[in-house]
Structure formats: C-alpha cells, structure tokens
Design a protein around this nucleic acid. Structure first.
Length: 415
DNA sequence: TCTGGGGTCCTAGGACCC
DNA sequence: TCTGGGGTCCTAGGACCC
C-alpha cells in the first residue's frame, strides 16, 4: 500500500526571517500582512503569549510592546524563494511531490518499514540545506498525513499514523475542527449529531455525513478511516483565476485614485496571466469598504474577447471602476480578478485583426522582461499611477536577501 | 485611528431546452 | 377541473484552505 507524507514548514514566514536573523531565535516573533494589518505567522513564543493567527495588529500591539515581540512586515519575495529551495530538497527524496502551498508539500512513497527513518533523514536534510525546521506526518491518506504533521510538531518532528491501531486514540483526541476541511461552520452543524472529534466523524454513518457536509465531507470521513479518496496532484492543475487586490493604507475617496490603483492591479494580473501562458475571457473589479464596521465588497464584471494584453485589461478595469464608484464613499480596498482563463496559444483570432494585437503582445513581452531583470515595477504603463494616495503601510520589511544582488546579506568572519 | 491576499470546490436555484 | 419530466448550463454565494 502506498503512503503519503505531508512535509510542513513550522511557522514558515517567521522561520524564513530567522534563517537570516538568528538573533530572533528563542524570542517571540510575528510577521504581519500587507499594510501591517494582521498577524500571519507566529513563532512558538508568540503563540504562547496568546497572539492569535489573523489577529489585527492594533489589537495585539500592547502585548507586543509589553513582551518585546519582534514584528516584521511580510517579505513574500523571500518566502517564495525559500519555498522553492525546500521543494528542490524534497524532489530529491520522493518520486512524486505535490507542492500544496507555499509551506506544505505532499509526497508519495511505497510504504515500507524504513519510512519513519527516511522521514527523519529528510527532515534533517531540509534543515541543513535551507535552515528551516519542518514537521512530517506519515499516513495511508492525505487527510491523515495532514493530521499527523500537525501532531508531529509536539512529537519530535515526525509522526506516523500508518498503524490503524495507533490512529484511533489520536483521532478521538482531536477536535473535529482540526480536521483538514472542517472549520467552525461545519463543526456547528455536526455538534447536534454528537460529532465533536475526528474519531466521531470517522465512525458516523455515511448518509448522515453526506446530508450534513455534502460530498466533500464524506470523502474526508473515508480518508480518516484510512481509505484514500484524494490523490496526489503531481502536476499543478490549470488555474481558474488570477486575483490582484490590496487594502489601502488610508481610505480613498476619489475616482481617479481608484482608477490608477486598479490600473496597476490589472497590469500585475496581466503579467501573471502571461507568465502562466494564459489569457482571460472575463475581468471583474471589486471595491471594498466598511459599513457599520463590517467589510463589504461590491463588484462587477465584463466579458472580453480572450486577452492578456495589459492596455486592454487596464481599460476594462477602469471602465468597471466608473460603473461601481459612488461619490462620497470611503474605499478601503480594491481588486481585479481575471477569469475564464484559457491557454494563450489556443489562438482563436479576431475576425478583423489589424495586427495591433501582435504589436501589443511584443511590447508586453519586452515590459515583462525588463521588470524581471530590473525588479518589479521598473517599467509601467501610463495609467498605473502608483500614487501615495493608496500606497500600503509596510514599516518593517526585511531585505530581499536571496533574490536581489544589492540586498545580499553580508557576513564577516571574526578573526 | 488601525482588521491580508490568493485561491479552490460544492451547492442551490434560475433559465432554458426538448 | 385538469397543468410533465428530465436534463443541461450558468451563476452567486458559502465554506474552506494556507
């Protein structure tokens, strides 16, 4: 029988920062989202202080000051690069690897008795080559492997749930909300049926699970029983959408400022679509604000002849912004979503092609190449005015240590 | 005063068709 | 007074993930 391993980087963003700033070891550390808005990664010491995942920064600021918590603005360029380094180590150890998220990968192995030992060796090797600590769960299904890696954090870094007997006690000791795919809403619907732990869910009747959670929940229950329903997605699936959205550093009231922000987002989205060899048949724009303290998103969309041309997408985004905009509203965020994606080479040419599309595509390629070599945003289209009217706060970002020559870390040897 | 960003899948209901 | 049945496709919204 095959076995799955889930390799999970512990407190990934914080750990990436610590690799280059070892003085942060042993101290409480948090990493903040865009705009320094909320907490998106916490060291164990920070968790122990009661700082919650996703907590708004302003709510924990007193705690941060009181305990000398180090806080860092997110540096995604660094995290993406570190993630690739981890993947390349994993690829040397398993025939099939699914990079599930920036900090988690599923591996598939033929199950044998040496698996736990090999997992420990793998863990040591990731540490050696990247400086990052990982936890590994081993199990006959993905959902169980996920649970295993969770528990592994307090069990020496590797935990096997391959043995059915050993699993039972662990499942009974796991709240159902710790199961991959079950969150608060589902837990509330399960509670009236006496289902509170992972073990309860595994033992529940199929018909009941199906009626309460739907087909996805039923698959999960089978996975918890040790019957694989989820397979390894070795090849990344075709992406369905591309989103670029940002919260603003301060509220935006003017249509022109909104349009310039959306133009910049549309340009980033177009760039991403081109990088994936895709073009979009639909573009939507959303504007976000707060009403009675609650976030509200208003959006609208338009069909397009499939394209990944930046000026075309910028025009479409601006037109939708004009439709949505209401004078006097305090906008806090905006975004652009590309959908209806298809391969860019599935050329279904416009009936009346005057050749301008070809010129525009060549221009886009040049812009992409310049931005790749000179750094993002080096070349921009006129409409995308990165004005300070909507710029994000980002007070304490670390350098791009691994991806920019001029920001390399300097190390001096003591003589 | 200050609350992220980028995704996926499933479901229910409406429109439409024969 | 009687008023079918079965299907597809699309969309919006819900729920969840990291």
């Amino acid at each position: 029988m095959p076995a799955f391993a889930l390799v999970d980087c512990n407190n990934f963003f914080v750990s990436c920062e610590r690799v280059f700033r070892p003085e942060l070891e042993g101290r409480p550390v948090i990493v903040l989202s865009n705009n320094d808005g909320c907490v998106i990664s916490r060291s164990e010491e920070a968790k122990a202080l009661g700082i919650g995942m996703g907590a708004p920064f302003f709510e924990v600021r007193a705690l941060v000051a009181e305990h000398g918590v180090a806080w860092i603005s997110a540096n995604h360029e660094l995290y993406v690069d570190m993630s690739k380094r981890v993947s390349s180590v994993l690829a040397r150890h398993a025939p099939v690897v699914e990079n599930y998220s920036i900090d988690e990968s599923f591996l598939a192995f033929p199950a044998d008795r040496t698996l736990e030992e090999r997992a420990r060796a793998l863990r040591a090797e990731v540490r050696l080559w990247t400086g990052l600590p990982v936890s590994i769960g081993l199990a006959p299904t993905k959902a169980l492997a996920k649970l295993g890696s969770d528990k592994a954090k307090r069990a020496g870094g590797v935990l096997s749930l391959l043995d059915a007997g050993a699993r039972e006690a662990i499942l009974d000791d796991t709240p159902v909300t710790h199961v991959w795919g079950i969150a608060q809403r589902s837990a509330l619907r399960l509670a009236p049926h006496g289902i509170r732990t992972a073990g309860d869910l595994a033992r529940a009747r199929d018909a009941l699970i199906r009626s309460v959670l739907g087909i996805g929940g039923l698959r999960l229950a089978h996975e918890l029983r040790g019957t694989p329903c989820l397979t390894l997605a070795a090849a990344p699936t075709e992406r369905q959408s591309v989103t670029v959205s940002r919260s603003f550093g301060k509220p935006v009231y003017g249509l022109e400022a909104l349009k310039s922000a959306l133009a910049a987002f549309a340009a980033r989205a177009a760039e991403r679509a081109r990088r994936h060899g895709l073009r979009a048949g639909e573009l939507s724009v959303h504007l976000g604000r707060r009403v009675d303290g609650r976030p509200v998103l208003e959006g609208t969309s338009a069909r397009l002849p499939p394209t990944n041309d930046t000026p075309t997408l910028i025009r479409a985004a601006k037109a939708l912004a004009e439709k949505l905009f209401v004078n006097g509203r305090a906008y806090k965020k905006a975004g652009v979503v590309l959908a209806g994606l298809e391969p860019a080479d599935a050329a279904q040419n416009e009936l009346f092609d005057d050749g301008s599309a070809g010129r525009s595509a060549r221009l886009s390629r040049v812009v992409d190449r310049l931005n790749a070599s000179l750094g993002a945003g080096a070349v921009r289209y006129g409409g995308e005015n990165t004005s300070s009217a909507w710029g994000a706060r980002c007070e304490s970002r670390s350098p791009h240590w691994t991806t920019r020559w001029d920001e390399l870390k300097t190390v001096r040897a003591a003589v």
